[in-house]
Nucleic acid binder design. Structure first.
Length: 279
DNA sequence: TCCTATGTTGTATG
DNA sequence: ACATACAACATAGG
């Protein structure tokens, strides 16, 4: 599920736990989620730590637990985060994590949301957990080395041009899905960007003129910003004027020209576009 | 039974 | 070394 805006939405789900201390860590030890760090190491490291805060960058998230300890999370295809307050009846003892709840951190009542648990669930287990111990208070190197965010000042024309020119035979939509160039863009955002640009997803970088390249930079940023506006706070629904609500199944119509939308596979990914607007 | 799914990675080939 | 293309990962739902 999660692209940039959905990742930001889920990151905020854990905010009520900020300031809380981890009183119990539960894991599903054999989950693929823990392929980078064994579940036992995660349990050992996070126990009795204070949850200080978090950041998102594209589809990556990092959670600070003080003393140079950082928990990295990627939601893969089906990951979700939630904060579950302990309500009266159930108490803090709780039951075992449910089938797809791979990491559960029980917190004491010091956080803004009171006592409760931080939950990471991911049925398909394409998600990933990492753990870093740093000597200073800075986040780990892999985090600092992430490519410039699309809304950051480092996302320049020059950078965009260089990236486009590097892959002259790769379809534009496939380029948009490359996290080195467009961190946070996923399948629906890539279709939305091509549609707003007015360029068919199969077109390649050499087919874009100067004007289209500049428009691409504007459109990529616009889609990121408005997706965050609509989704990050409360998972709102994008309006009918976007391609988004029309692209999910056959028979949808272009909200700009009314023509029936085309759907197909591009490099293994479902792709939706308008022959009229993106010929 | 077969198809789909908002993602990434390893591997083979040029 | 780099660019390109695809299978594989694991699960649920239509």
């Amino acid at each position: 599920m999660p692209e940039l805006a959905e990742v930001e939405y889920y990151r905020r789900r854990w905010d009520p736990g900020i300031g809380g201390r981890v009183v119990r860590v539960r894991t599903h030890p054999r989950a693929r989620i823990f392929r980078e760090v064994p579940a036992a190491a995660v349990r050992r490291a996070l126990g009795d730590r204070e949850f200080l805060g978090s950041e998102a960058h594209g589809k990556q998230m990092i959670f600070s637990f003080g003393g140079g300890l950082w928990l990295g999370l990627h939601l893969g295809m089906s990951g979700e985060l939630a904060f579950q307050p302990f309500d009266g009846g159930e108490g803090g003892t709780g039951c075992d994590p449910e089938k797809h709840e791979h990491l559960v951190l029980d917190l004491d009542g010091e956080g803004a949301g009171g006592p409760g648990r931080l939950v990471f669930r991911d049925p398909r287990m394409f998600g990933k957990i990492t753990l870093d111990r740093c000597d200073d208070d800075r986040p780990p190197l892999w985090w600092r080395d992430l490519p410039p965010g699309i809304l950051a000042s480092g996302f320049t024309c020059e950078r965009l041009d260089a990236f486009l020119d590097r892959f002259p035979r790769t379809p534009l939509k496939t380029l948009l899905l490359d996290q080195r160039g467009f961190p946070g863009v996923g399948n629906w955002m890539a279709d939305e960007i091509c549609w707003r640009l007015g360029v068919a997803p199969r077109r390649t970088a050499p087919e874009l003129n100067r004007e289209q390249r500049e428009k691409l930079r504007r459109v990529v940023r616009q889609v990121c910003r408005s997706a965050l506006d609509v989704i990050a706070e409360d998972w709102g629904t994008p309006p009918d004027s976007w391609l988004f609500p029309h692209r999910w199944e056959d028979g949808g119509h272009c909200p700009r020209c009314g023509r029936e939308l085309s759907r197909g596979k591009l490099r293994g990914r479902t792709t939706c576009w308008c022959e009229g607007c993106q010929g």
